[in-house]
Amino acid sequence: MYNFTFHRPTTVRQAAGLLARNPDGKLLAGGHSLLPVMKQRLAQPSALVDLSLVEGMTGVELKGRSVVIGAMTRHADVANSQVLKDVMPGLAAVPGSIGDPQVRNRGTIGGSIANNDPNADYPAACLGLGATIITNKRRIAADDFFTGMFSTALEEGEIIVKVSFPVAKKAAYEKFKHPASGFALVGVFVSKRGPDIRVAVTGAGSNGVFRVKSFEEALKKRFSPKSIEGMSIPATGMNADIHASPEYRAHLVAVLARRALAKAND
């Protein structure tokens, strides 16, 4: 790891100030994506701004018809949140499936979303529920937030503070977990909230998380695995690597979507 300076602000404003003074600096949340990348010397930030002491950035709250999660809330705390398990267990299952127990004890929702790893789980949940990402500057709809592999709509100096998820009556996540990394080879999040139907896919697309509009359209009639029986998506634009071919990933999208729909209707 290359060296850097280390800062521990206690307010979002201080953190933003530190970022402004260190243009090559990076925010540090749980560190379970950033530190490995730094150890491989693939990232070389001049400064790390650790958000762990910033007040008001943790917790899971039910606010009206939304669940609001602080950006620094650890995966384990979201997965175990009784509030969340009561209103939307399908969302609680997402952080519960990330990595391993020790990773879940450190990793955070804000870090996962800001990193936008093409195989990460939270981006599928955000897009699959139509979440709103709340930063120190503005509110960004999930549909506008994830702009491609490892890239987001976040601007320089912008800090994710919270993520707000509308409570969907039906919501579920199905994931084909890579046995070594714990990442999603493919993951599909489905939800139904009134007329709003969403099917979001992570792990498969070579441009990061995406929605499957053809499935969403077919599910308008009936939110059931039967509605997309026999449907598939093209392999073009799917990731290819040593773990799976584009065709296999495209196949998994349909299989996991049907499983997720069955789970959501359970």
């Binding site: 521990r8 530190l35 490995p36 150890k39 650790d50 127990p101 020790q102 004890n105 450190r106 070594a180």
Partner: peptide, 29 residues
């Protein structure tokens, strides 16, 4: 492994298990 996979480095930070190869000493101030 030094890549947060094998768990040989697990310690408890404030009572909760974590991988010490993926945590900076300064994060534990």
């Amino acid at each position: 492994c030094d890549t947060s996979q094998c768990g040989a480095c697990i310690v408890h930070i404030d009572g909760i298990a974590a991988k010490a190869c993926t945590t900076l000493a300064l994060q534990c101030e």
